[in-house]
Every structure is written in structure tokens, then in C-alpha cells.
Computed example of a mutant assay.
Amino acid sequence: MSRVVATTTLWRPTGPEELALVEASGWAAWPPRLPEQPIFYPVLNEDYAIRIARDWNVPASGVGYVTRFEVEADYLARYPVQQAGGRTILELWVPAEDLQEFNQHIVGPIEVVHEFRPQA
């Protein structure tokens, strides 16, 4: 009998390069951070992820994606929720050195739920 694990839904706005690496993992893991990226920032609010993908990723990369994924809730308890602005601007700050372990606690696939491109 399999055990049921409580999960928390997270979102991550991303550009095409990072998304290609997620796809290469079989939609199972986030790639290692670059040296200038000491923290991995998943967000707790879909609307916030949409704003970042649309307003930041599209101008920077020509396309922005919002991904959704589930992570074991007990594992996430080690990362306090960070309020990065208004009351709905909520993130987790996962140190780059924790990302491989973080990936082991993802439950199910990482899914693309929104795609944004420049307005014609």
C-alpha cells in the first residue's frame, strides 16, 4: 500500500533556456543554478508567477512560461515563506546547494501552465 504524501503547489516563472533543461530532465527536476544565482525562487502564488513570466521573462527572452509543480509539504517546512513585496508576493528561497535535494522531493511532473509572448 502506497503512502499518501501531503504536497504544496509551487509555481516558477521561467524562460526558454531553463525550461529546456527541465524538459531534458523528463519534467522531473530544476537545473543547477548558475554561479551568479545563489538562490532558487519558487513562488506560492500563480498570479505572481504570471506577472513575472509576462513582464520580465518575455522582454528578456522573447517568451515566458509559468510552471506548476508539487513538493512534499514536510520538506518545504524548512524554508520560511518570504514576502518579497505586497502580501501576495510570496516566495521560497532555496539555496543553490539545496536544489538537488529539493528536486528529490518534487512529487509528479513539472507542468507548463501558461505561455506568454510579445503582443503583436
Rank of each mutant, 00 (worst) to 15 (best):
Q100G: 02
F102L: 15
A24H: 12
V112Y: 06
H114S: 11
T67L: 12
G64N: 04
P118V: 04
A29T: 06
Q83Y: 03
R87Y: 10
I52R: 06
A24G: 14
V43M: 03
I50C: 12
R51D: 11
Q100I: 10
W27L: 11
N57L: 15
E46H: 09
G86S: 14
L90D: 02
D47I: 15
W30K: 03
E17S: 09
A84M: 08
E101G: 01
F40K: 04
R54H: 05
P32M: 11
G64L: 09
G26R: 11
L21Q: 14
E101M: 02
Y75R: 04
I106D: 00
P38A: 09
F116K: 12
D47W: 00
A96I: 00
I106H: 02
A49Y: 10
E72H: 03
A84R: 07
G15P: 14
W11R: 01
I50V: 05
F116C: 07
W30M: 07
S25M: 06
P16E: 15
A96R: 09
P42T: 03
A20H: 12
Q37V: 03
W56Q: 09
L21W: 14
R54A: 02
E115S: 15
P16Y: 05
A60H: 12
H105N: 09
R12G: 06
P31S: 03
S25F: 13
P13A: 15
Q119S: 11
R78M: 14
I110D: 05
L76Q: 07
G86D: 15
R68S: 10
A84L: 08
A60K: 05
E115T: 15
Q83P: 01
R3E: 14
Q37N: 13
R68H: 03
E97R: 11
D74C: 13
T9Y: 00
I39R: 06
Y65P: 02
T9F: 01
M1S: 15
